[in-house]
Design a protein around this nucleic acid. Structure first.
Lengths: 182, 182
DNA sequence: ATCTTTCTTTAACGTTCGTTAAATATATTA
DNA sequence: TAATATATTTAACGAACGTTAAAGAAAGAT
């Protein structure tokens, strides 16, 4: 209820962390954007670091998990095209959170603790897609290489959308993925 | 001669900009690492911003240009495998400069002026590779899509090496690129 | 109506930042 | 050697930072 101020603070924080980075963003500017006094930020979050942590640990991984729990595969190419394409249509807030997550993933922001979480997550990426893809792979290609290449290409496409702020059409995505998926 | 202090300052700056980002890095820490007093940084660089600019505008684009001016193509796959693989063996300093450049390229650091330089550069990437690749493309595939996909995959591989600090073997690179180059 | 809890602000704290003025040392030139 | 130019330091400036103490306002409970 009144905790909608807490939410607005987090949203403004996402905005500022995005624009100026962790060190460049200031609690004062965040509070000013929200229209509340500076100590209100400390009323809801015990420090700047905790505010950043909540954004990454909760919001970012929520988006990632939501995306990972997508519907089952019928057609490999269709599935992965949608997997990437839908990111175009995330809310502005989610896109900014995603961008912050990528920044931590690339160790451009965050600290050791967040990097460890990212590393653990990253280790699951290839195996997870391998399990998804292998049953549907028709060709005699080396599956491990196909999965690795696919994941690398998708990482770049998602980065374009979420970090550089581009829109990539469904056709473009399908064209590129189809080269790898045969 | 004595300008080797200027160089040492820039090298320490690259280190700190890399570790802490533009806002997180401080002139004081840079000077301390070099072993000189703080104002010496201002003796050679008129501001923190100018120091960052020189690293990106001079050093980063030097690396990029050096890489772009590589030997001519005989075999497409060999060429691009080497194109990516050699990045593993850049000097530590060059890798850090490269990492900073990628950070600006992704608009995680820098300002409007640097972004414009990056945008202008980025516009040339696809056409340049298109001209390189097209004469050597044996298949009937759509060349534009192949080039785009290749560049996207390479961007991800280079980012892994330079930003995440991974080493990627020649075989791994060739395996992935060969999926796209036939 | 009073008491208590929750929300919010004013005002300041100590620290650190980018930057510069002024003085000093070192080297170069005459 | 005296004069000049270059290199370097000490010390400080004002501004902005993250954070907190203390007090006031609003809301809820008794």
């Amino acid at each position: 209820m009144t905790d909608d101020l807490k939410l607005k603070i987090k949203q403004a924080a996402v905005e500022h962390f995005n624009k100026d980075g962790y060190h460049g963003a200031t609690i004062r500017n965040i509070a000013q954007d929200v229209g509340c006094s500076l100590p209100m930020v400390y009323y809801y979050y015990k420090s700047k670091k905790e505010l950043f942590y909540e954004i990454i640990k909760k919001d970012y991984f929520d988006i990632i998990a939501r995306q990972a729990n997508m519907l089952r595969i019928t057609n490999l190419l269709d599935f992965y095209t949608q997997f990437v394409y839908q990111i175009n249509h995330l809310s502005d807030y989610d896109k900014k959170v995603y961008r912050l997550g990528v920044k931590v993933y690339l160790s451009f922001d965050g600290d050791v603790e967040l990097m460890e979480i990212m590393d653990k997550w990253e280790k699951n990426i290839l195996p997870r897609h391998y399990e998804l893809i292998m049953p549907h792979l028709k060709t005699q290609k080396d599956g491990v290489v196909v999965v690795r290449t696919l994941v690398h290409l998708m990482e770049n496409l998602i980065e374009s959308i979420v970090v550089k702020g581009r829109y990539i059409s469904e056709d473009e995505i399908r064209e590129e993925l189809s080269i790898i998926l045969q």
